[in-house]
Deep mutational scan, measured.
Amino acid sequence: HFTSQQLQELEATFQRNRYPDMSTREEIAVWTNLTEARVRVWFKNRRAKWR
Rank of each mutant, 00 (worst) to 15 (best):
D21A: 06
R40K: 08
Q6I: 07
A37G: 07
W42F: 03
A37C: 08
R16K: 13
N45V: 11
V39L: 03
T32W: 07
A29G: 06
A37E: 14
A48S: 08
N45D: 10
F14H: 03
S23T: 11
E36A: 06
A12G: 06
T35F: 03
W31A: 15
Q15D: 07
R16M: 09
R38T: 14
T24S: 09
Q5L: 11
R18A: 09
H1R: 12
T13F: 15
V30K: 15
E11L: 05
V39W: 01
S23G: 09
E9G: 08
F43G: 00
V41Q: 14
A37Q: 11
R18I: 05
L10P: 01
R38P: 01
R18P: 14
Q8M: 12
W42A: 00
V41I: 14
A29L: 02
R25W: 05
H1A: 12
R38Q: 15
R47Q: 06
L34N: 06
A48N: 08
L34T: 13
D21G: 06
E27K: 13
S4G: 08
T13P: 01
T24D: 07
M22C: 09
K49H: 10
E36G: 03
F43M: 03
E27Q: 14
A37R: 11
N17E: 06
T24N: 05
T24C: 13
E9L: 15
D21T: 08
V30F: 13
W31G: 11
V30Y: 13
T24M: 13
E9R: 15
F14R: 04
L7S: 05
V39P: 00
E36W: 03
W50R: 07
E27C: 14
R16W: 10
W42G: 00
K44Y: 11
V30D: 10
L34V: 06
T3C: 07
R51T: 07
K49F: 08
A37I: 13
T32I: 14
A12N: 11
K44T: 08
K44F: 09
L10V: 00
S23Y: 10
N17T: 08
S23C: 12
D21H: 05
T24Y: 07
T35L: 04
L34D: 02
V39C: 02
E26K: 14
R16G: 07
Q15R: 10
W42E: 01
E36K: 04
R47G: 02
R16P: 02
S4T: 13
V41T: 12
E11A: 00
V39D: 02
R18N: 06
N45E: 14
Q15L: 11
E26V: 13
R40I: 04
W31N: 15
T3G: 04
A29I: 04
R51S: 08
S4D: 11
R38V: 15
N17W: 07
R38W: 12
T13Y: 15
Y19L: 04
S23H: 13
L10Q: 00
R16V: 12
V30P: 00
E36R: 02
H1C: 13
W50Y: 07
N45A: 12
W42Q: 03
Q5F: 14
A37H: 11
Q8W: 12
F43Q: 00
Q8D: 10
T32P: 02
F14G: 03
M22D: 04
W42I: 00
Q6M: 06
P20K: 04
H1S: 12
V30R: 15
A12V: 08
M22K: 15
F43N: 00
T35V: 04
D21I: 04
P20A: 06
F14D: 02
F2I: 10
T3S: 09
R51Q: 09
I28P: 00
L10Y: 01
Q6V: 07
